[in-house]
């Protein structure tokens, strides 16, 4: 996954802050933290050039645990804070961490706008399908009928599909991974980091206190073969212990089939760089929830003008055209007269 000629200058420990991690024991957030700390040395960057920005929630405590620069912001606004930071400092690596409530409820607006602008920030959405920090209300990704303290008779709200939202917002990089597979997380985060633009990664994250086992149907070891569909660029989409299942495009809908029934040639070949997002969208919506075959990996990775650099280019063009900054000239630009 990384350039073999590269010698890391840091160790995972260099990326850990001195703060005691305060998530509940057993929380999926721990394994995501470990994956990121382990990944960082291989990225060819330094803690001092890295910033983690977050909103509010359990997930959003993340920046405190990384020995980098960090902003623990306010609920939902992390993508906007990060956008300003990335614009002012295109030289930095900016990561945004948030929960499903943070990024899809109160901050949904900022998320979609950051994605459509394609500003170079890496957004990791820790989806536990619940409001963890406020002790267990249903979230915008909770399934209909979820019984929580605020929905004792079952929630009535239809959930968002985070990947479909991101694709609808014209995200140029969209991926999914889960907290039970460190290597898959590291590979996915590495790809997000390498992407020149906004990168959106949904991480299935277990909240063992308020929504335990929400993703077990697909992430538990014994369920993975049958229910996780690893997407590999340029390869036919197949899964199962012996590759006995596959995915086909049936009149614009993705459908799971027995490979033997359709033949290898009928399987959909994954093309993450396909500019039209329809196939990625269809794959994103393949599973109705984390209880049936669910694709993971990179759904979409396309090139699109990066926002912060485009801003910088405009500044350079303006200098060319209008000349260097000259206060006297500006103050006289509307005409002057002498008394």
């Amino acid at each position: 996954m990384t350039d073999t000629s590269f010698t890391p200058t840091t160790q995972p420990g260099d990326w850990a802050s001195d703060q005691e991690v305060r998530w509940c024991p057993g929380c999926g957030d721990y394994s995501i933290l470990t994956a990121l700390r382990m990944l960082m040395p291989s990225l060819g960057t330094e803690p001092r050039n890295t910033v983690f920005v977050s909103g509010i929630g359990c997930a959003a405590r993340f920046p405190y645990y990384m020995n980098t620069y960090g902003v623990h912001g306010i609920h939902g606004r992390a993508p906007a804070i990060a956008t300003g930071l990335a614009m002012a400092r295109p030289d930095l690596d900016v990561w945004v961490i948030g929960g499903d409530g943070d990024m899809l409820s109160i901050g949904g607006n900022h998320l979609i706008h950051a994605l459509r602008r394609n500003v170079k920030i890496k957004l990791l959405l820790f989806n536990n399908q619940i409001y963890g920090l406020t002790k267990g209300q249903f979230s915008p990704t909770s399934e209909i009928g979820k019984v929580t303290k605020s929905s004792p008779m079952g929630s009535l709200d239809a959930p968002f599909n985070p990947l479909a939202v991101a694709l609808g917002a014209e995200a140029s990089f969209v991926a999914r991974t889960h907290d039970m597979d460190r290597q898959h997380m590291m590979d996915t985060f590495q790809r997000a980091h390498a992407h020149d633009g906004a990168a959106f990664v949904e991480v299935f994250q277990n909240c063992n206190v308020f929504n335990d086992g929400a993703f077990e149907g697909v992430t538990k070891k014994q369920n993975r073969d049958a229910n996780l569909i690893p997407l590999r660029d340029g390869e036919p989409i197949r899964f199962g212990a012996d590759g006995e299942f596959g995915v086909i495009d049936e009149a614009g809908c993705a459908r799971v089939v027995h490979t033997a029934d359709v033949g290898d040639d009928e399987l959909l070949v994954h093309d993450e760089s396909k500019h039209d997002p329809s196939t990625a969208f269809m794959l994103a919506r393949l599973a109705r929830g984390p209880f049936e075959p669910t694709p993971i990996g990179v759904f979409r990775a396309v090139r699109r003008s990066e926002y912060a650099m485009a801003t910088t280019r405009q500044l350079a063009a303006a200098q060319q055209k209008q000349g260097a900054a000259d206060i006297g000239q500006m103050l006289r630009s509307r005409g002057t007269w002498f008394v």
Binding site: V53, G73, A80, T83, G84, A88, Q322
Partner: peptide, 29 residues
Amino acid sequence: KKNFGVRTFQAEDEIAAAASAVGAAFGGA
């Protein structure tokens, strides 16, 4: 006045406008 190195950001709402400014300030602008 982009030739002064001024970066302007038309945000999606006033909350994002203020939040982006906080981010830029953290970055030293």
